[in-house]
Design a protein around this nucleic acid. Structure first.
Lengths: 209, 209
DNA sequence: GACAGTATGTGACAAATGTAATAAGGTTAC
DNA sequence: GTAACCTTATTACATTTGTCACATACTGTC
């Protein structure tokens, strides 16, 4: 595996290089110190995996990831970080990063590189723990648990897609008044106030009291 | 690593057992054919990793995961599947499953088991590709890119929390009319129609045309 | 058959929401 | 200093939304 390592701390890049090259299947083909380096190095070497810190001066690992992934969707980027910030995690995942590990997990890095190299993605323990909270949806069957009938679930789903009552009525071949009635019932059952809260609930599971 | 394998196809459990035990660090301590078996086996053996199919008669791998994780948060479950259904993926992640691979990735299973055993989570190529779409997001800084001013971003965030205009006005010490104006402006800039669409956009990134 | 539940509809009404026009004080940039 | 923009506000109006009360019809179950 051909790897590029980017971190603004020379000690870290050095240590990583040494640790990783102890594995005979790993070759570190380049190292850099910030996001710009990452982009340049990626373009010239096209490594199997780009191993990069998130926090860096100049250009962060996140921005670099975004840029690289925008011209090469297939890029395999594994981010390393010391901090656990939801926003970073979400952004990284949105951009299409293939892995996200805490620096403290260094013993697992080689392991993770192999998985990423094969196209899988790998997330460190703490990131894994956060994942459930970052997800969308509230899928149909979850709504059942709140006592919503079939039609009510359908209506709820459409509200959460941003449809107006009229559109929902058209979509489901109902009168607009009926749709309003359904929504009224849904809000009652869930203890919500209006369609926007319903959409938010549907997408995040958030409930008020 | 002590592994339990559950799949309703005996050929599959057999094959997996053979393939995995070729790795000297793997011991298959039990096999089962459906979700109920999974729960029982998990309780008696407490394996390092539970490798399980999703589609099974009687009790699905998903339900079994839910049950096991409800009494043991630390359970390391790696799901295998033939089908890619968003709903399954989301649910599995919500429950706290540590891995999700396609059966076709069998060559990587041992690899993945090791990662999962160390607390990391692993997702197959296709699942990885879906991840970005399943996330919540739209963080403040993304909105800037659409030309929203500071206050507008603040308002948008509150709309996406399900607040009414009056509440937002109270929260931000503005008049209700002003809030309405801001929202009007935001909708215009984003090409949206109403606050519900704004909430949906804020949470999922979905835009209409 | 009576009853409960779901599915569907109506009409009327109050409140919330979105738009438009307009205005004035502030900041920043050229 | 003037143009551009942000912040804040008001008023008036049209539309959408949510609630209520009530009605019909179809499904089951007891």
């Amino acid at each position: 595996m051909r790897i590029v390592i980017v971190d603004d701390d020379f000690f870290v890049t050095g240590a990583l290089k040494t640790i990783l090259e102890a594995n005979e299947d790993v070759t570190v083909v380049g190292t850099g110190a910030d996001g710009k380096d990452a982009v340049t190095l990626y373009q010239s070497y096209r490594p199997d995996v780009l191993l990069m810190d998130i926090r860096m001066k100049e250009m962060s690992g996140l921005e670099a990831s975004k840029e690289i992934l925008s011209f090469d969707q297939e890029a395999r980027i594994l981010l390393l970080t010391t901090f656990l910030d939801d926003e970073y995690i979400v952004k990284a995942l949105k951009y299409g990063v293939k892995g996200y590990l805490l620096k403290q997990d260094y013993a697992c890095i080689a392991q993770a590189l192999r998985a990423v190299c094969m196209g899988q993605s790998v997330f460190g323990t703490e990131i894994t723990a956060k994942l459930p909270g970052l997800l969308n949806t509230k899928s149909a069957s979850d709504l059942k648990e709140y006592g919503l009938s079939g039609k009510e679930q359908e209506v709820a789903a459409l509200v959460a897609e941003g449809f107006s009552n009229k559109e929902i009525a058209g979509e489901m071949f109902l009168s607009e008044g009926t749709v309003r009635n359904y929504i009224s019932g849904i809000l009652e059952k869930l203890g919500l106030r209006d369609r926007t809260q319903l959409a938010v609930f549907y997408l995040t599971g958030k409930l008020w009291e």
